[in-house]
Nucleic acid binder design. Sequence first.
DNA 1: CACCAGGGTGGTT
DNA 2: AACCACCATGGT
Length: 217
Amino acid sequence: MFATVLERLLGRYGRQGWWPADSELEIMVGAVLVQRTAWRNAAAAVERLKSAGALSTNVLTTIPLGRLEHLITSAGFFRVKAKRLRALADSVARAGGVTVLRSYPTPRLRAYLLDVHGIGPETADSILGYAFERPVFVVDAYARRLFARLAYPDPLAADATLKSECEHALKTASNLNELHALIIAHGRASCGSIPRCLDCCLKSACGYARAESLASA
DNA sequence: CACCAGGGTGGTT
DNA sequence: AACCACCATGGT
């Protein structure tokens, strides 16, 4: 069923190609900046950091907080996010740099990320998947809503269950990364803002079969 | 004008 | 454990 959803979304929206970046750190920084924010605005902030030469742990740990805030205003919540970027950079430096993080096994890396102030489950999993290419499914509001509708009328399983079932079904970071991106594209495009639109998502508008046949696919 | 975007934290019940 | 207010800019 996860494979079917991936296949259909792929057919409808095409490859999303997330995450455009030059380094792991850039993705980690972007993941914090994009929290509850349109990617366009977060991306502009990433570019400003890059132009200012601030996209390194060394600079991020030492740059005055006010200057950091100024560089990322376009991403919104800039006071909170500036502190989060600082906490992230401090943490990466303490760990010994991104190279060391790269050698962590996935469970340890996930625990490490969750321990950083300002990084919760979704941001941690985004970083695991897109920066470190670990086979991880990012459970966000769109994913919950979509799979709740696909499972209708059954209640949606807990995040951890949805996550592990999806990871087991799709296996590769490439598949799981693409699915997350596609689910967001789908949410933006059509069904996302329409409450309980079973017709829209499961049948005509988005090319889905009915829920029953999809669940058994 | 209101509403939302690739969340997480801290405080209250 | 389940809510809740809050954070703030830029596009539609």
